[in-house]
Write a protein that binds this DNA or RNA. Structure first.
Length: 426
RNA sequence: GGACAGGUGGCAGAGUGGUCGAAUGCAGCGGUCUUGAAAACCGCCGAUGCGCAAGCAUCCGUGGGUUCGAAUCCCACCCUGUCCGCCA
């Protein structure tokens, strides 16, 4: 959600930002609506003011027993009130129209975000690790996984496409990854472990920007709640409508949760394998900071996500997303892409975004700077640290052996009860 | 799910039709005193919108309604507490 005051004072800059994202300019429409709305609001408030004044006078007159004056004042108020219902309705309607218009506009990219239409314009910033050289043809996880307990058939039979059933050591490895990541983020990076609801109100999805524009990407329950598409929703909205103490910032929260996505717009993409599921696990990182601290926090958060890949010894590259590939709420986003030898490609495994005050405005999440009277909006950041399912894919493909078995990365062995290898079951 | 009780400022807690955005206490901020601190005393101290400002408007769980006027009366809903039932 954008700051109306900013749009009023910098309409050109605002439209330029939207245009960089490939969105239509909107300042003219917004400002015209805003002007009409304020005109109506002022007229309404003037009427209210006169009504309040007269009502007070009625109270005073009646206190003195001056019934005559009271009655004539009542007649005057009745006159004033005639115009009010229409003004109230117009004010409400214009306010709603303005709100809906603003709510549908994406965040403005930060200045150093490269311009571009799609992922081809993303900029590679760095690479870590050396892709392993194989003395055999590395398989894709969808081929090497099934004998190891990655059961796509049963998942599909139970729930349809994009659901998978994990068995035996495969299920254990999946759990081990989630536990390891959560321990890593709480132990190494100072995030507070959280276990939030997975079912949330509509307002929560509005706050983090999934609604109103992306309703079809999410699952709704029969009683009007929504399944979270990411723990970003639950963790970020934990500060909604709050005024935080300066000293409480930064807030760093993490959670290992299931995530649910209808993948409405992804027909035909990654239909094979474990990459794109309707239900998956993810360790999410959320930070709430002072405005001046969010840029540094963004770097810190991305390093926290990178730390997991490094601990697992998985080669990856770090991308700065271009304007056309960023999410709706992001000001600036780093993607981490892990090397998948079976696919021979780097694939997204983490996305770390600085949302600035965009979500904070939608949530009314504020803080009071030390010694100041006015509140300010916080900045919010979110990142994956990491997506568990895709990390499982990466481990399978990078640690596969010629005989179809998969070695367990060293840091996971304690989480596997000492098991060091996944063996194919006939 | 049933019965009862209740939702007021950061917290606690008054207020049941008029000058109440709201007593009081605690917390917080500023000051006096003090070598310093504590105590004591004095003052300030909710949010949002519009406005250069003065100020005006809105907000007492949410949404409607009654009234010249609603924190206060009426209706619906949401939430919390207690007891009962049920359940992991």
């Amino acid at each position: 959600m954008h700051d109306l005051a900013f749009i009023r004072s910098h309409p050109g800059e605002f439209d330029a930002g939207l245009q960089r994202r490939g969105a239509e300019p909107a300042a003219d429409r917004i400002l015209a609506l805003d002007a009409r709305r304020r005109e109506v609001t002022t007229r309404l408030q003037e009427a209210q003011s006169r009504r309040n004044e007269a009502s007070k006078a009625i109270g005073q007159a009646m206190g003195k027993g001056d019934t005559e004056t009271a009655e004539s004042l009542k007649a005057e108020v009745a006159q004033i009130k005639q115009a009010m219902p229409a003004l109230e309705e117009e004010d409400r309607a214009l306010g709603a129209e303005l709100h809906d218009l603003l709510a549908a506009l994406p965040n403005i990219p930060a200045e150093d975000v490269p311009e571009g239409a799609d992922e081809n314009a993303n900029v590679e910033l760095s690479r870590w690790g050396t892709p392993r050289s194989f003395d055999f043809d590395p398989q894709e996880h969808a081929d090497l996984g099934p004998p190891l307990g990655l059961d796509f058939e049963t998942g599909t039979a139970l729930s349809g496409a994009r659901f998978t059933f994990l068995r035996g050591r495969m299920a254990r490895l999946h759990r081990a990854l989630g536990q390891f990541m959560l321990d890593h983020q709480t132990g190494e990076n100072g995030y507070t472990e959280c276990a939030p609801p997975l079912l949330v109100h509509e307002e929560a999805l509005f706050g983090t920007g999934q609604l109103p524009k992306f309703a079809e990407d999410n699952f709704q329950t029969t009683d009007g709640r929504w399944l979270i598409p990411t723990a970003e929703v639950s963790l970020t909205n934990a500060v909604r409508e709050q005024i935080l103490e300066d000293a409480a910032l930064p807030l760093r929260m993490t959670a290992l949760t299931q995530c649910f996505r209808s993948e409405a717009g992804a027909a035909g993409r990654d239909t094979r394998g474990f990459i794109r599921q309707h239900q998956f696990e993810k360790v999410e990182l959320v930070s709430v900071t002072r405005p001046e601290d969010s840029a540094a926090e963004h770097e810190r958060m991305t390093q926290a996500a990178e730390g997991v890949l490094q601990a697992l010894d998985l080669p990856y590259r770090k991308m700065l997303l271009c304007t056309g590939d960023m999410g709706f709420t992001a000001q600036r986003t780093y993607d981490l892409e892990v090397w998948l030898p079976g696919q021979g490609a780097y694939r997204e495994i983490s996305s770390c975004s600085n949302c600035g005050d965009f979500q904070a405005r939608r949530m009314a999440a504020r803080y009071r700077p030390d010694g100041e009277k006015k509140t300010r909006f916080v900045h919010t950041l979110n990142g994956s640290g990491l997506a568990v399912g895709r990390t499982l894919v990466a481990v399978l493909e990078n640690y596969q052996q010629a005989d179809g078995s998969v070695a367990v990365p060293e840091v996971l062995v304690p989480y596997m009860g000492g098991v060091t290898r996944l063996e194919p079951q006939p």
